[in-house]
Design a protein around this nucleic acid. Structure first.
Lengths: 159, 159
DNA sequence: CAACTAGGTAGTGATTCGCAACTTAAAAGC
DNA sequence: GCTTTTAAGTTGCGAATCACTACCTAGTTG
């Protein structure tokens, strides 16, 4: 007797992944550090000078990102002073979120076209703007969306 | 004589839209308030009781989101005590970012399948997982990406 | 073995957060 | 029309977080 759909009204908060995501990524600097990691920065000093973040904050955030299994912390074998922070699979899977946020900031910032463009390395064409897509690939907007109870989805998928 | 590509190394920080996006959305609660707005909550008290956020913080965040033109603040004509906060176009265009973050939180949270599923209202099938797509639609991962100078992109697009 | 480097930690003041109480203006109840 | 209730804030204050600087320690270089 599950309610079939809800009118995008209030959803069970704890069913939503957003709070959990924000627990890991919601603090100041977290996204900037993630960007640095995606940009190939691996070491503490590298990130510190690149981001201009305070050292204790950086240490705290790196620790937290490692705890959340977004980054992996491994001592370098060749120079045992150095520590390499690298993205885990979980961390890499934040790429779409980060690109979407970046694209939004570009689109709605000052009209500057934002010069180095993110491209597919295969054909060097810019990547698509990130959108929500339906099962069959149609791009969707907010008003095309609906919350459906899991059981009802499965039933319909069997059709 | 622009450098053709960079190996995803350091990018001009100010060319990146991420800091600008975080200026508007990087504070605690901003994303949760945005989610509330997407879920149809329009009024102060509604959001306050739904999110459990402190009133002063909510007032501050709403003010900031309005300032950033993510929300629009309009007094209700029928009840002049009430104020309606509604998403602007700029605010609505944060939908992909929010869904991407939510999906990430669901995928990597406790193995709970997260029950009400976000679906296309047309066929009631779940929406796709948000990804980065190439110009031609191929899904791309981190290692498929490259920064290309704008002028070089245009040149290639003309081909 | 002296100097330097990588990755932190510790101390301190400035911000911000979060809770509760208060305010103001507009409805509703009677 | 007078009291009560509701909506949307604002204010004060203690607790937590941020950011800046200085310091520390292990490992590496000259």
């Amino acid at each position: 007797m599950g309610k079939l759909t809800e009118p995008l009204g209030d959803i069970g908060d704890d069913e939503c992944g957003l709070p959990r995501a924000l627990e890991a990524m919601g603090e100041r600097w977290s996204f900037m550090i993630l960007r640095a990691a995606f940009n190939g920065l691996k070491h503490f000093e590298e990130m510190q000078s690149n981001l201009g973040i305070a050292r204790n904050i950086l240490a705290n955030r790196l620790g937290r990102l490692v705890e959340s299994e977004i980054l992996e912390r491994q001592p370098c074998p060749d120079d045992r002073r150095k520590i390499e922070y690298k993205l885990t699979e979980k961390g890499e899977s934040l790429l779409p979120t980060m690109i979407a946020l970046r694209q939004w900031g570009e689109k709605w910032g000052t009209g500057v076209p934002s010069n180095p463009v993110l491209c597919d390395e295969r054909d060097r064409q810019p990547v698509q703007t990130i959108r929500v897509h339906a099962h069959d690939g149609r791009p969707l907007d907010w008003h095309d969306l609906l919350w459906v109870d899991q059981s009802d989805v499965v039933a319909e998928a069997a059709e």
